[in-house]
């Protein structure tokens, strides 16, 4: 049981690492949104699922409710994260930022 929890947690941390590195490495703001908005979402899903499983160790009604609340956070983030990403893209487009294309200087 503990092994599954640790595996899920570390997989989540791995995706979080990818998200943070992607924000630093990618050349412009549109491509930075790809790791930021979505690698983070999957990382949150994996690590919070692991923590919800760990929370069920000593089973009781309260622990079950807490785990369900953690799953509720995951569901909420899955609905909210694409919307937030889309809002940021929209702000960039309306402010007139042109997307980076291959061969240009990074910014």
């Amino acid at each position: 049981m503990d092994i599954i929890v640790v595996l899920l947690l570390f997989a989540g941390l791995f995706f979080f690492t990818g998200g943070a590195l992607g924000i630093l490495r990618f050349p412009d703001f549109y491509s930075r949104l790809h790791p930021a908005g979505k690698l983070d979402t999957l990382g949150l899903l994996l690590s919070l699922t692991g923590l919800a499983l760990y929370n069920l160790h000593h089973f009781s009604v309260g622990a079950l409710l807490t785990s369900l609340k953690i799953i509720l956070i995951v569901v909420f983030v899955f609905l909210a994260s694409p919307t937030a990403t889309h809002a940021i893209v929209d702000a960039g487009i309306r402010a007139g930022l042109a997307p980076w294309t291959k061969g240009e200087e990074r910014r």
Partner: peptide, 12 residues
């Protein structure tokens, strides 16, 4: 939303 959730593509 599904397009935005699959990485590599963002709906503009």
């Amino acid at each position: 939303n599904s397009i935005t959730l699959t990485p590599g593509t963002i709906t503009v």
